[in-house]
């Protein structure tokens, strides 16, 4: 009796040390509850739907997690995604340009990285706070998207470009493969690599990080640049999936991504969070809509539920910290 107890206690202590344990349990419990109500909820088709719904958020969440861990954040990802997709679309479709798709794709990525670099430069070098900076960039990038597109959607990008969004490898759709691969890579890097681990120090105490010899400004700029680049990738894949780039594409995505990352265990005050946790946050948010459908609740409840989950996550986090 006593020995089993201590084994259980120790196992529980070890489990509690896993930073994503809460969100993981919540996701599993949620999925099992829905499955108990209607087994079709965990069918391959539903899972596929959920993963296809969240791939863009998952990609952007990789960059956003790095930013939140280092004490920053990026409100411009939705707009930058749209601008990058629209830039690539215009380069391919504008009669005077008609650029080959790989070049257009790279140009789209470059636009995202450049926007991110501008964010990073303003935040790190000039020292403006991330909220103002990326709010400005959000409006600027959205405006530019409307300017370059003339306010109109573009489509018909050809089968090769669209394959990136619609093709399958071993039966799995490309966006799912790409996003899951990125999540795994980013998670391992942030967890294990010396370079990325510096983010935890910057978010923990920026002054102390500087005194420890960490190149704080350079890393911050890198983070914003990466966030822009990943946002661009998400936007391009989204355009490829729909075979359409719309000027209002991804409006409001930035808040969904930040919500998912925080639900996944990161904090706006920096110093904590993991990519895997952020991914689970994306999964949880992506399950809400299918769950609402399964339960035959009005679809209008989705946002209210998302908001409640965010508040609940933050409250639980605070309570958990007090217990310790």
């Amino acid at each position: 009796m006593g020995t089993t107890d201590s084994v259980l206690v120790r196992a529980w202590a070890a489990v509690k040390r896993v930073p994503e344990i809460r969100i993981l349990l919540v996701v599993i419990a949620f999925a099992l509850a829905m499955w108990a109500y209607d087994p079709r909820f965990l069918s391959p088709a539903t899972i596929n739907t959920i993963l296809l719904y969240l791939f863009g958020f998952a990609i952007m969440a990789c960059g956003m997690t790095m930013l939140l861990v280092s004490g920053g954040f990026d409100l411009s990802v939705g707009s930058v995604a749209a601008l990058s997709a629209m830039t690539a679309a215009m380069l391919m479709k504008h009669p005077a340009i008609l650029l080959a798709w790989p070049l257009a794709f790279l140009a789209g990525l470059a636009v995202g990285a450049a926007m991110g670099l501008i964010n990073g430069w303003i935040v790190a070098r000039v020292g403006i706070n991330p909220f103002i900076t990326t709010l400005g960039m959000m409006l600027l990038a959205r405006g530019l998207t409307h300017v370059v597109s003339g306010g109109m959607s573009r489509s018909d990008f050809g089968p090769q470009f669209c394959w990136l969004g619609q093709g399958r490898v071993a039966g799995v759709q490309m966006p799912i493969i790409i996003s899951l691969t990125l999540v795994v890579v980013a998670d391992v890097l942030l967890r294990k690599s010396r370079f990325f681990r510096q983010n935890y120090y910057i978010g923990g105490n920026e002054q102390a990080a500087w005194l420890s010899g960490i190149a704080v400004n350079r890393i911050k700029m890198f983070n914003y640049c990466l966030s822009g680049l990943l946002a661009a990738l998400a936007g391009l894949l989204f355009a490829a999936r729909l075979d359409s780039a719309a000027p209002n594409q991804g409006e409001g995505d930035e808040l969904k991504v930040i919500t998912a990352v925080i639900v996944g265990g990161a904090s706006l005050s920096g110093g904590k969070g993991t990519v895997f946790g952020a991914f689970l946050g994306c999964v949880l948010l992506a399950m809400i809509l299918p769950a609402i459908r399964t339960l035959h609740i009005e679809v209008h409840w989705e946002k209210a539920v998302v908001g409640s989950i965010l508040l609940l996550a933050v409250l639980l986090d605070r309570i958990g910290r007090k217990e310790k």
């Binding site: 010396r194 370079f195 681990r197 510096q198 935890y200 120090y201 923990g204 105490n205 002054q207 102390a208 990080a209 005194l211 420890s212 010899g213 960490i214 190149a215 110093g271 904590k272």
Partner: peptide
């Protein structure tokens, strides 16, 4: 350099003892 202001400039108060001790190494590849 051991700073005079350990709370504001020296330590990562929310981080572990281990991470604090590792800081001067993690910063240098």
């Amino acid at each position: 350099y051991v700073t005079e202001d350990r709370k504001a400039l020296g330590l990562y108060l929310r981080h572990s003892v281990r991470d604090n001790l590792a800081a001067p190494w993690v910063s240098r590849a």
